[in-house]
Design a protein around this nucleic acid. Sequence first.
DNA 1: CTTACCATGTAAACCGTTACATGATTCT
DNA 2: AGAATCATGTAACGGTTTACATGGTAAG
Lengths: 198, 198
Amino acid sequence: MSLEHILLGLLQRPGSGYDLKATFDGTVRHFWAAELSQIYTTLQRMERTGLLKSRVEPSAKGPARKVYSVAPTGRRALRAWLTDAPKVNDQRYTYLAQLFFMDSLSSLDQTLAFTTSLRETRADALKTFRAIERQWLDEADGSVDDMSDENFHQYVTLRAGIHTMAARLRWCDETIRMIKQRADRQRNGRGQRKGNTR
Amino acid sequence: MSLEHILLGLLQRPGSGYDLKATFDGTVRHFWAAELSQIYTTLQRMERTGLLKSRVEPSAKGPARKVYSVAPTGRRALRAWLTDAPKVNDQRYTYLAQLFFMDSLSSLDQTLAFTTSLRETRADALKTFRAIERQWLDEADGSVDDMSDENFHQYVTLRAGIHTMAARLRWCDETIRMIKQRADRQRNGRGQRKGNTR
DNA sequence: CTTACCATGTAAACCGTTACATGATTCT
DNA sequence: AGAATCATGTAACGGTTTACATGGTAAG
């Protein structure tokens, strides 16, 4: 139920579902994504179970806004979650699954093209992360020490994304190198070894 | 629908749901996890939609086994998925979400303890990955070139896990260093800057 | 006799994506 | 007039976890 806890965290400043979607995309999207529809239904559930309260406010534009804020029960729930041990959840990587079975295409060229294409997307993502980091550092006069504690906590989660993405790029490069080496060997007639007969 | 595709990949050697759970845990668990109950229901759906066929076989021990294998439609679906572009899916990191909001505990000591504890679990996980890699390399006489193409594809996904986990460890170390530095500064009375007043 | 392993599932609840539906205001 | 943005949702489907239910064989 981490989405609920993230919403509790974000709602330390009250807001509507629509507001929260924007905040989501602007702050936590590098480690958590959520669609508007999911946010709306989750907020409704959280009000039903007493974690949140809401009031309806007229809007300058469009329909009335339903502004949520954290109820006392919610505050306790957030605190309990934060003082709990770090929760490690399983990750699912679709592209690694594809790669895992890609031998059945019997074409190292396909594997090479796949990995090369993946590398590009990861390089773009890393560039984006680094640009966001530069903005953060500019706003803090270039020094992490000048950040507020609040910004510091947020900043280190961005650093996590940068480390991970950089590692993935290095892995792509290592893999591309190994694929090329393997393809060369096979072209030079050293490919027939250990059941490698496809 | 990646679980379906992974099951298609694994079922290139036919097997029962129970078999598949064991294979899952032994081969792809570092990038994909699945419970038995999910595997059973997914296999049933895939037979209903024509991706798989099954036959019932008596078992040496326990109840009859329902052995699934890939139907022609399934073979085409697997091929289409493998020749598709690398699919990057969003990752959700619960512990980064916790860290993101942890400033509201107003205690850098808590943040330090949290990160230190996380570091331990990541170090253990990395150790496990490295042990598995050593086994793989031993079986291939220590050289990646001596692996079959099939094993090579599987090996590189393990390397992805190792790169990622090592990066996460380096991030933990970097973060721990920054937290300590920040705590020191605040104890030495330089803590009151830029809204850092909690 | 009890535990572990083999082998099958169902049910309930929540997580998450995609598509659909509605309607107001503001800018071009 | 049409597009963008504000703002709310529902529905359907599949993904995932946890708990429950059943019963056989083999080893200690």
